[in-house]
Amino acid sequence: MAAPSVRIIDTNFNLLGEIDNYESLQFTRRFYRPGEFEMHIHLGKRHTDQLLEDRVIYINNQQHKSGIIRYRQIVEDDKGIETLIIRGPTLGGVLDQRVTVSDNYDRIIGPAETVMKHYANNHLGNGTYATGIYAKRQIPFFAIAEDQTRGKTTPWQSRFEPLDQVVQEIAEWCDIGWLVSLDFENKKWVFDVLAGRDLTTNQNVLPPVIFSNEFDNIQSQGYVDSSLQFKNVGYAGGQGEDEDRLIQMIGDAEGLARREVFLDCSSAEDANELTSLGEQALAEQKRIRTYNGLILNTGSFEYEKDWDLGDIVTQQNKKWGLTMHSRITEIKEIYEPASKLEITLGDEIPTITEFVKKLRSDVKRSD
């Protein structure tokens, strides 16, 4: 992969500079949540003075590969060389700046795309909680793409939760991705969903994509199959106290295979909603199967043409007895003297930080 150029703009879409002589660049794209980027460049090179907080960068003139600078660091090595390090999330990281403000629980039922865009519009666009007395919450250059009603139908509710976490949970539950990209013509940051394609060997509509040692297109592989946090039967607790509290059982596994957990769903208004909330909460404690590897540029499958983020592909390692048909949930583009492409298929392995954020959110919802 050739190292891409990096363009710098402000929120008014004014071009402030272009850089292609950086020391290194890593750009990570994710399907269910925002990605991030990190650039290292020697201080004093042309346009490094434009790499300031809240400036937007995008690479290779691709509108969907864009991010906002949120971190700057200058380091000097033992030879006196000063290097500027910048980091930040992809544009979807702007959802981290809002919580789902609501007088009562904001409830909606519909296709996943409709539900996700409802919350994004309500808190960043021109929806109920971004206009009128909430007008200061609106970001004027934030827009919502036309709703194509993609994804499975789901009920959802939220109140004073991190907006980015709400959208991520909907995306994971409904298995649909999302992003915020640049619209230069209208000078907007546009929220939209990603559906992905089925490129596995289980279908015959599109040419299948297979990552395997036999094809010499993948190496440095890793595989995780974990049931440490897995639960498959939940007791969803609704409204009421003590013996009067409504309890709904979710799941029917039995014997040694049965793994139980209590699910606090006290915001549910009736038995149907309690069941829906219970199913969503139980799904968060799923079995984790993930695979990652370094993609080799052998020409068999071309990135962003034959396969891309969100596509479901086949991964095989006959030595490990492994065949997975999984979605590509993360792609890391690494541009250094030796450029690399790393992918992750299947489930993300939760980090300690993500676990703590989730725990705090659960405590807030139970208050």
Rank of each mutant, 00 (worst) to 15 (best):
M1R: 07
M1P: 04
S5Q: 03
S5D: 11
D10A: 12
L16A: 00
D20G: 00
F27M: 05
Y32A: 02
P34W: 03
F37D: 08
H40C: 03
T48K: 13
Q50P: 04
E53N: 03
V56F: 11
I59K: 00
Q62F: 00
K65P: 00
G67H: 06
G67K: 06
R72K: 14
Q73Y: 13
G80F: 06
I85S: 05
I85Q: 02
P89G: 08
L91E: 08
L95F: 13
T100C: 13
D103K: 13
Y105G: 00
R107L: 04
G110W: 10
P111H: 09
A112Q: 12
M116R: 02
A120S: 01
H123K: 09
G125Y: 10
T128V: 03
A130Q: 03
Y134L: 02
Q138P: 00
P140E: 11
F142W: 09
A143F: 15
I144G: 11
E146D: 15
Q148M: 09
K152F: 02
R159A: 05
P162W: 08
P162C: 01
D175Q: 03
S181T: 08
E185Q: 14
N186F: 02
K188W: 00
V190R: 14
G196C: 02
R197W: 00
L199N: 12
L199M: 07
N202V: 05
V209E: 10
N213M: 05
D216N: 15
N217T: 12
S220V: 03
Q221F: 10
Y223K: 06
Q229K: 03
Q229S: 06
V233F: 00
Y235A: 03
G238W: 03
I247M: 14
A253K: 10
E254D: 06
G255P: 12
F262I: 04
C265V: 06
A271V: 11
E273H: 07
S276E: 15
G278F: 02
A283I: 07
A283H: 12
A283W: 10
K286Q: 13
T290N: 11
L294W: 02
Y303K: 15
K305T: 13
W307A: 04
L309P: 02
G310D: 13
D311C: 10
T314F: 03
Q316T: 07
G321R: 10
T323V: 14
T329E: 08
T329A: 08
E330N: 10
E333H: 06
I334F: 00
Y335H: 14
E336G: 09
S339W: 13
L341H: 13
E342W: 13
E348T: 02
P350V: 05
I352E: 08
D362F: 01
D362H: 11
K364G: 07
K364D: 11
